[in-house]
Lab assay of single mutants.
Amino acid sequence: NQASVVANQLIPINTALTLVMMRSEVVTPVGIPAKDIPRLVSMQVNRAVPLGTTLMPDMVKGYA
């Protein structure tokens, strides 16, 4: 199973992502692939993302 990107903490709306905010985990449904973590750094979330939430492409500005 492919690992997805999961929030390692509460990420407030419009926050630029950093490595410490994200972890990889095998979850259902599948979200953004963990291999894309380096690409996500500095991108902003367009909503508040609670701890443990799988990041989906529509949550990150400029990803999709």
Rank of each mutant, 00 (worst) to 15 (best):
residue 1 N to S: 15
residue 1 N to T: 15
residue 1 N to E: 15
residue 1 N to P: 15
residue 1 N to D: 15
residue 1 N to A: 15
residue 2 Q to T: 13
residue 2 Q to V: 14
residue 2 Q to N: 13
residue 2 Q to L: 13
residue 2 Q to C: 15
residue 2 Q to G: 14
residue 3 A to T: 11
residue 3 A to R: 03
residue 3 A to F: 07
residue 3 A to K: 04
residue 3 A to Y: 08
residue 4 S to I: 02
residue 4 S to Y: 03
residue 4 S to W: 02
residue 4 S to D: 01
residue 4 S to R: 02
residue 4 S to L: 01
residue 4 S to F: 02
residue 5 V to F: 02
residue 5 V to T: 12
residue 5 V to H: 00
residue 5 V to W: 01
residue 5 V to E: 00
residue 5 V to R: 02
residue 5 V to I: 08
residue 6 V to A: 04
residue 6 V to R: 04
residue 6 V to K: 03
residue 6 V to W: 02
residue 6 V to Y: 02
residue 7 A to N: 01
residue 7 A to G: 03
residue 8 N to Q: 13
residue 8 N to G: 12
residue 8 N to E: 13
residue 8 N to W: 05
residue 9 Q to I: 09
residue 9 Q to R: 05
residue 9 Q to Y: 11
residue 9 Q to D: 08
residue 10 L to S: 11
residue 10 L to I: 13
residue 10 L to Y: 06
residue 10 L to A: 13
residue 11 I to S: 01
residue 11 I to Q: 01
residue 11 I to F: 01
residue 11 I to G: 01
residue 12 P to D: 13
residue 12 P to Q: 07
residue 12 P to K: 08
residue 12 P to G: 13
residue 12 P to I: 04
residue 12 P to R: 09
residue 13 I to H: 09
residue 13 I to W: 06
residue 13 I to M: 11
residue 13 I to L: 08
residue 13 I to K: 06
residue 14 N to C: 13
residue 15 T to C: 05
residue 15 T to D: 04
residue 15 T to G: 04
residue 15 T to E: 07
residue 15 T to I: 08
residue 16 A to Q: 10
residue 16 A to G: 11
residue 16 A to K: 06
residue 17 L to W: 00
residue 17 L to C: 02
residue 17 L to G: 02
residue 18 T to Y: 03
residue 18 T to N: 05
residue 18 T to C: 05
residue 19 L to P: 12
residue 19 L to E: 08
residue 19 L to S: 14
residue 19 L to N: 10
residue 19 L to M: 08
residue 19 L to V: 12
residue 19 L to A: 12
residue 20 V to A: 09
residue 20 V to D: 10
residue 20 V to N: 13
residue 20 V to L: 09
residue 20 V to I: 10
residue 20 V to K: 10
residue 21 M to T: 03
residue 21 M to V: 05
residue 22 M to K: 00
residue 22 M to Y: 01
residue 22 M to C: 04
residue 22 M to W: 01
residue 22 M to L: 08
residue 22 M to Q: 01
residue 23 R to G: 12
residue 23 R to N: 09
residue 23 R to F: 04
residue 23 R to M: 08
residue 23 R to Y: 05
residue 24 S to R: 04
residue 24 S to P: 09
residue 24 S to V: 09
residue 25 E to L: 04
residue 25 E to Q: 07
residue 25 E to D: 09
residue 25 E to M: 04
residue 25 E to C: 13
residue 26 V to I: 12
residue 26 V to C: 14
residue 26 V to W: 06
residue 26 V to D: 15
residue 26 V to R: 03
residue 26 V to Y: 07
residue 26 V to M: 12
residue 27 V to R: 07
residue 27 V to D: 02
residue 27 V to C: 08
residue 27 V to T: 11
residue 28 T to R: 03
residue 28 T to V: 06
residue 28 T to P: 02
residue 28 T to N: 13
residue 28 T to H: 05
residue 29 P to D: 13
residue 29 P to Q: 08
residue 29 P to R: 03
residue 29 P to F: 06
residue 29 P to M: 06
residue 29 P to G: 04
residue 30 V to E: 15
residue 30 V to K: 03
residue 30 V to Q: 12
residue 30 V to C: 08
residue 30 V to P: 13
residue 30 V to Y: 11
residue 30 V to W: 06
residue 30 V to R: 03
residue 31 G to A: 03
residue 31 G to T: 01
residue 31 G to L: 02
residue 31 G to M: 02
residue 32 I to Y: 01
residue 32 I to A: 02
residue 32 I to P: 01
residue 32 I to L: 07
residue 32 I to D: 01
residue 32 I to S: 01
residue 32 I to M: 03
residue 32 I to G: 01
residue 33 P to L: 14
residue 33 P to K: 05
residue 33 P to M: 12
residue 33 P to F: 11
residue 33 P to H: 14
residue 33 P to A: 10
residue 34 A to N: 06
residue 34 A to R: 03
residue 34 A to D: 15
residue 34 A to L: 03
residue 35 K to W: 14
residue 35 K to A: 15
residue 36 D to S: 05
residue 36 D to N: 05
residue 36 D to Y: 04
residue 36 D to E: 10
residue 36 D to L: 03
residue 37 I to L: 14
residue 37 I to P: 00
residue 37 I to C: 13
residue 38 P to C: 10
residue 38 P to G: 08
residue 38 P to N: 12
residue 39 R to E: 10
residue 39 R to G: 14
residue 39 R to M: 14
residue 40 L to H: 00
residue 40 L to W: 02
residue 40 L to E: 01
residue 40 L to S: 00
residue 40 L to V: 06
residue 40 L to F: 02
residue 41 V to G: 02
residue 41 V to F: 05
residue 41 V to R: 04
residue 41 V to A: 04
residue 42 S to F: 15
residue 42 S to Y: 04
residue 42 S to Q: 10
residue 42 S to C: 15
residue 42 S to M: 06
residue 42 S to P: 02
residue 43 M to L: 12
residue 43 M to T: 05
residue 43 M to R: 06
residue 43 M to C: 05
residue 43 M to G: 04
residue 43 M to Y: 05
residue 43 M to F: 09
residue 44 Q to Y: 09
residue 44 Q to L: 09
residue 44 Q to K: 13
residue 44 Q to N: 05
residue 44 Q to E: 14
residue 45 V to M: 07
residue 45 V to H: 02
residue 45 V to Q: 01
residue 46 N to E: 14
residue 46 N to F: 10
residue 46 N to G: 12
residue 46 N to W: 07
residue 46 N to M: 14
residue 46 N to Y: 10
residue 46 N to L: 11
residue 47 R to I: 14
residue 47 R to N: 12
residue 47 R to C: 07
residue 47 R to H: 15
residue 48 A to T: 11
residue 48 A to I: 06
residue 48 A to G: 06
residue 48 A to S: 14
residue 48 A to P: 08
residue 49 V to P: 02
residue 49 V to L: 10
residue 49 V to D: 02
residue 49 V to G: 01
residue 49 V to A: 07
residue 50 P to E: 09
residue 50 P to T: 15
residue 50 P to Q: 14
residue 50 P to C: 13
residue 51 L to I: 14
residue 51 L to H: 12
residue 51 L to K: 09
residue 51 L to G: 13
residue 51 L to C: 14
residue 51 L to M: 14
residue 51 L to S: 13
residue 52 G to I: 02
residue 52 G to L: 13
residue 52 G to A: 08
residue 53 T to K: 07
residue 53 T to W: 12
residue 53 T to V: 10
residue 53 T to G: 14
residue 54 T to W: 02
residue 54 T to I: 12
residue 55 L to P: 01
residue 55 L to W: 00
residue 55 L to A: 00
residue 55 L to N: 00
residue 56 M to C: 15
residue 56 M to E: 06
residue 56 M to F: 09
residue 56 M to S: 11
residue 57 P to K: 08
residue 57 P to H: 09
residue 57 P to N: 11
residue 57 P to G: 11
residue 57 P to R: 08
residue 57 P to M: 05
residue 57 P to C: 15
residue 58 D to K: 07
residue 58 D to V: 07
residue 58 D to T: 06
residue 58 D to Y: 06
residue 59 M to C: 14
residue 59 M to W: 10
residue 59 M to R: 03
residue 60 V to G: 01
residue 60 V to W: 01
residue 60 V to T: 01
residue 60 V to Q: 00
residue 60 V to N: 01
residue 60 V to I: 14
residue 60 V to Y: 00
residue 61 K to V: 11
residue 61 K to S: 12
residue 61 K to A: 07
residue 61 K to F: 08
residue 61 K to T: 13
residue 61 K to P: 14
residue 61 K to C: 15
residue 62 G to N: 12
residue 62 G to C: 14
residue 62 G to R: 05
residue 62 G to T: 07
residue 63 Y to E: 07
residue 63 Y to W: 12
residue 63 Y to S: 04
residue 63 Y to C: 06
residue 63 Y to R: 03
residue 64 A to N: 13
residue 64 A to R: 11
residue 64 A to D: 13
